[in-house]
Amino acid sequence: MIFIIGLAAAGLLGLGFVAQQHAAYREPLGRMLHPSLLLDLIHKPLWLAGLAAMVGGQILGAVALSGADVSRVEPLLATNLVFALVIGRVVCKENLHWNEWLGGLMASGGIALFLVLGSPRGEHPTGPESGRWLAAVGIVFVVLILVWIGRRSPLQTRAMLLAAAAGILFGLQDAVTRGLLIRIGHGLGAILASWQPYALVVVAICGLLLAQSAFDAAPLRVSLPAATAAEPITGILLGVVVFTERLRLGAGPLVGEILGLAMMVAGIIILGRSPYLAKREDDVAGCAEARLP
């Protein structure tokens, strides 16, 4: 049952990403990284449908995580990239070459291999007052650097960097959510008195803006892999630093983790070299044009 729920969550996430990207892709490039991008997208039925699908996938993912270890569920959720490519190909008639399928499979497979072999154990409760949460400041600093470099990079590179920054924020969002769930027994008042619920809202909105800006710049096969890879890895790193989880560092698991990371990076590079990398100022997403009434 966990396997089915996990795959259903990944499918909904993939569907949500496809719908959101094809709505965001129609926006002018001048709106990238500007709040007006989100304000415009919330009036588009296609984007709202994608957002609903993404939320549904996150809820199913949480249900799966409540009944199984992270090492069993996260690899299933990481297949959302493959689902997105398949849905884009079937629904939107996007032409995908063999190297793009190979890149998608390598990226998703590498993520899954890293998560299965490196999944941390031994989580300890960490309150919002703990100094370990200062690691979140470092995460935000990395995101700011990626955005700064991305704004000065060619469009296809910008899409991947913004997507990676979004994935990192999504990983931070997962960690903050985990911290809230750990303290849920203390009561609603204690939760609202801490910084975590407010930080969660800010991080979620900023991550959404970065993701839609990446979708505005390039197709999913360019903009999504970096986000798909960055989220679980960031979540694991924060789990180790904030919740004192322990990664598997034996000789066998360590080799597999390195191999998984290498596969993931190679898959992203293959996808990033797609002949159709990014739109011009006058491009329009054909799928969205065709599907909207």
Rank of each mutant, 00 (worst) to 15 (best):
W148A: 14
G179P: 04
L115Q: 03
V55I: 12
V143T: 03
T228K: 02
G50V: 05
G167Y: 06
I182E: 13
L155G: 00
V142R: 00
L65F: 10
G122M: 00
G61W: 09
V142C: 13
V82C: 09
F83D: 05
V91A: 15
A10H: 05
R121I: 03
L180R: 03
A8M: 07
L48F: 04
L117N: 05
N99V: 15
P253M: 10
Y276L: 15
L41C: 05
G6H: 07
P225L: 11
G67R: 13
F141D: 00
H22E: 14
R158V: 01
L271D: 06
G189Q: 04
H124I: 08
L65R: 12
W47L: 01
V240A: 04
V255D: 02
F141E: 01
A285T: 01
V143Y: 05
R152F: 06
D40S: 12
V147W: 08
P128E: 07
L144M: 09
H43E: 14
A251W: 14
I5Q: 12
G118I: 03
L208V: 08
W133K: 04
L13F: 10
I205N: 13
T157S: 15
A164Y: 07
L292I: 11
G250R: 10
A53K: 03
S274T: 12
L76I: 05
L15T: 14
A218S: 15
L224S: 04
W195F: 13
V63R: 09
G272C: 09
L188R: 12
S71Q: 07
A163I: 02
G16K: 03
P45D: 05
M54I: 02
N99I: 15
L208Y: 09
G207T: 09
F170V: 05
R291A: 14
G56T: 01
P154V: 06
V116F: 13
A24Y: 11
H97I: 14
A226G: 08
L115E: 07
H186Q: 15
I145F: 05
V255Y: 13
S194D: 09
S223N: 06
G272T: 05
V142L: 15
A230P: 03
P45H: 12
K279F: 09
A78Y: 05
I191Q: 14
H97P: 10
A112E: 05
A64N: 04
V265C: 06
